[in-house]
Nucleic acid binder design. Structure first.
Lengths: 113, 113
DNA sequence: TTTCTATCCATAGACAAACTATGGTTCGGC
DNA sequence: GCCGAACCATAGTTTGTCTATGGATAGAAA
């Protein structure tokens, strides 16, 4: 019950920014990409994705522009800004630090106080 | 801004259960242990800890009893139940699966659709 | 003996993030 | 003409964590 959802809370912005680092993408494509690259483990619901993109826009970490997709549709393409690239670096290092710390707790078998 | 807090959301139950797997402990001791073992990276606030312990009690994953500490104080000791041990296993494997998936996204440099 | 710090418990309210549910448009296949 | 997939987006709920409180007691320091 600690997490019933489709992804680890607190990692969505990280995943989006990282995905956009590869190439600009529209929302739907971002969700597809994360799902595909993670082998269907991580599913980003639209109700999570679009609010997240709004946050990222407000922070100035991504910018958006309307374009036409290869399949001839209107779509909003999001691009990582310089600030977003910097932020991504910060989030990755913070994330890795946390992972290392959690790893220490999980690895900790026995120890005297 | 993805996470301003002291730990990764969704990992608290996991950390508590794992800590109790080593030995029964009171709330204060759980927080100290996590902080110490994680080299001060993970700090569990009391306002997060006690609600979490209530959740775990309700789920039947831990049980509690009042005892006297080594320092001669009243304290509620929490013990992992059999169900809790099972749950811990589940949460660890789910967590590791997520970590692997996030790792794939972060490692993904370039790829054609 | 008063005071302070550390040890311990616990809850209420605020806040942010993610989910459910919903509603809409357009393209292409049937 | 219909339907599914590709796209956008928001409102409202839920859940988890944090902030802010509040209280009690042991032991050290003053």
């Amino acid at each position: 019950m600690a997490n019933k959802g489709d992804l680890l809370p607190g990692t969505l912005d990280l995943l989006i920014l990282q995905t956009l680092k590869r190439a600009p993408l529209h929302g739907y494509g971002i969700a597809q990409s994360i799902k595909r690259v993670s082998d269907d483990v991580l599913t980003v619901e639209e109700g999570s994705l679009y609010p997240a993109l709004q946050r990222l826009l407000l922070q100035g970490w991504v910018k958006a522009e309307w374009k036409i997709t290869e399949t001839n549709r209107r779509a909003r393409y999001y691009t990582l800004t310089a600030a977003g690239r910097k932020q991504l670096g910060l989030e990755i290092s913070k994330f890795e630090q946390m992972m290392a710390a959690i790893g220490r707790v999980l690895a900790d078998a026995e120890e005297a106080g």
